[in-house]
Structures are given as C-alpha cells and as structure tokens.
C-alpha cells in the first residue's frame, strides 16, 4: 500500500497527535538525508580553503592571543581565573563559538537551502540535523586544540570531565533553539541575518568568556540573566575543576531549553510552508 498524504489549509495544531507522530516519523526519516547533507557540507567547507581544517583553530587562538596580550599590558583587568588565562579564554571561546555555530547555523542553512526547499518536499528537520552534526564535527576539531592546550598549561582535570559532554549538548541545544526560532523569519526578512552578527557580538560581551562570572553590580545582574552563562560555565567547570558554581541555574536553563526546543520545532514545521510560499512565486 503506497503512503498517502493529504494537504489541507487547516492548522496542524488541531490534530496534535498526528502532528507529533509526523514529527517523529520525519525525524527518523531525515537521519540518512541529514548525514548526506552533513557530509556534503563538511567536504565542501574545507575543499575550497587553502588552510583547510586550520580554520577551526584560528579564531580561538587569535582571541586568546589578543586578550592575553591586552591583559598583560593591563589594558583591562579581570578577576582570578581557575585555570591559566590563555587556556581560559581559548576554552571559553571554543565553547562560545560552538554556541554561535548552533545558533546561526540553522538560519544560514535554511537560507542556503532555499532553492531546494522551494522545489522538493523533504523532511525539513534534515537541514537542522545536518547543521547540528556539522557543529559537532567542528567542535571535535576544536577539541584537539583544547586537549593540546590542557597538556601545555598543565590544567588539572577532574573526573567530572566525562559529564562535560552532557552540559555541552545542552549548550548546543540552546543555540539550536535560537537558530530554529529565527530560521523561518530569517528566510523572509534579511534583517535577521544582518542583525545576527551584531546580536552575537553583544551577547558575547554579556557572557563570561573573557572574564570570570561577575558577582556584583548591574553587570553581574545582567550576566546572571544570560541563559548561555550557566551552561557555558558548567561545561568548563565540569571539564576542569569539577566544582559547580551554577548548578541550579544550569538545570533551570536546561529544562527550559528542552521544552522550548520542542515548541520551536513545532513552530518551525508549521511556519515552513508559509515561508516557502512567500520566497518563491
């Protein structure tokens, strides 16, 4: 019996069980396609770059060198860090970059896939999954840098490092949530991708990447409201000292992230046909 599809103008939200079932079905169906797309994107990513995979290392190293020089010259002062400052910056930058990749990836991927979206009805989840895989792959490469860094600076590692990937996944999922939320609007309005860089720059400023978590003042208040902070800090702490300073906010943010991800996914599915209809006619 061939599969049957019915297309009507009605909102899928009126049939929640059918909606959840199709979401699950498409997620399963998109695994292989996602893998293909990821292989395609990763191979294309480095093939036309003379420096190849080195591009995964360059940004964190450049950040670390810059900020370490600036700190040594007393351009700015930061509090005491648990691990040597260059390692601190480089590790945090790698984590932050991974979050940014996860947040901007879906928007860019959906925009690039526009011609494909407009012509073929494939599970749209595949684009997001492929991007997630790419984020993981790029982090894997950065991991080589981080391991080298830890050895070089003799950073003490706690047994809790085996839990660090869990926190990292939550960080990536939070980024993905932001990405999926913005992707449909990003296809319609260029304002999204135009402003995304600026927002990420400002967000970096509010995240304890180049400085340890501030505890006082209005700035400390702002940083404590930043959902990325507990996830990023917890990942770093799990990988190094093993002493968690933000455990409660970590779990609150993680819970909200998972719930939010499910909701944005539903929104994404519902929004995509309208987006496709507006971009190409």
């Amino acid at each position: 019996m061939p599969p049957e599809f019915v297309y009507t103008p009605d909102s899928l939200l009126r049939r929640p069980r059918f909606l959840l079932w199709t979401m699950w079905r498409d997620l399963l169906a998109s695994r292989e396609l996602a893998w293909r797309l990821m292989v395609r994107d990763i191979s294309a990513q480095y093939r036309q770059a003379a420096l190849g995979i080195a591009w995964a290392f360059i940004p964190p190293v450049a950040m670390a060198v810059g900020f370490t020089l600036a700190k040594d010259a007393n351009v700015f002062t930061v509090g005491e860090t648990d691990i040597p400052y260059p390692a601190f910056v480089m590790f945090n930058t790698a984590l932050w970059q991974t979050f940014v990749d996860a947040a901007t990836g879906p928007v860019q991927a959906v925009i690039i896939a526009k011609p494909m979206l407009a012509r073929v009805n494939f599970p749209r989840e595949a684009i997001i999954l492929a991007k997630l895989g790419e984020v993981g792959f790029n982090f894997g490469i950065k991991l080589i840098l981080i391991v080298g860094l830890f050895l070089f600076f003799r950073v003490p590692v706690s047994w809790t490092v085996i839990l660090a990937p869990v926190a990292l996944i939550h960080l990536v999922l939070l980024g993905t949530l932001v990405g999926i939320l913005l992707a449909p609007i990003g296809v319609l309005y260029q304002d999204v991708s135009k402003s995304l860089n600026m927002i990420m720059g400002f967000w970096l400023f509010l995240t304890p990447v180049i400085y340890p978590v501030p505890t006082e003042g209005a700035f400390g208040m702002l940083v404590s409201l930043n959902p990325v902070a507990p996830l990023l800090v917890t990942t770093r702490e799990l990988a190094t000292t093993g002493v968690l300073t933000e455990a409660v906010s970590f779990w609150v943010v993680s819970g909200l992230t998972l719930l939010g991800l499910l909701l944005t996914w539903i929104g994404f599915r519902i929004a995509m046909p309208y987006v496709v209809e507006r971009v190409t006619s």
Partner: peptide, 24 residues
C-alpha cells in the same frame, strides 16, 4: 511544498518532482 488556501489534495504513492533538477 505549500498549503492550499481552500480545498484538499490527496496523494497516494511516492511523488518525484522533476521541477527540481539538480536540487542541492
């Protein structure tokens, strides 16, 4: 790919669009 504004479409079977030569 896009939703109808009224009416309904039923499709039985695998559908291949030759609209999309070389998609991707």
């Amino acid at each position: 790919l896009i939703k109808p504004d009224t009416g309904r479409v039923r499709v039985r079977g695998r559908l291949a669009p030759l609209i999309a030569l070389g998609a991707g």
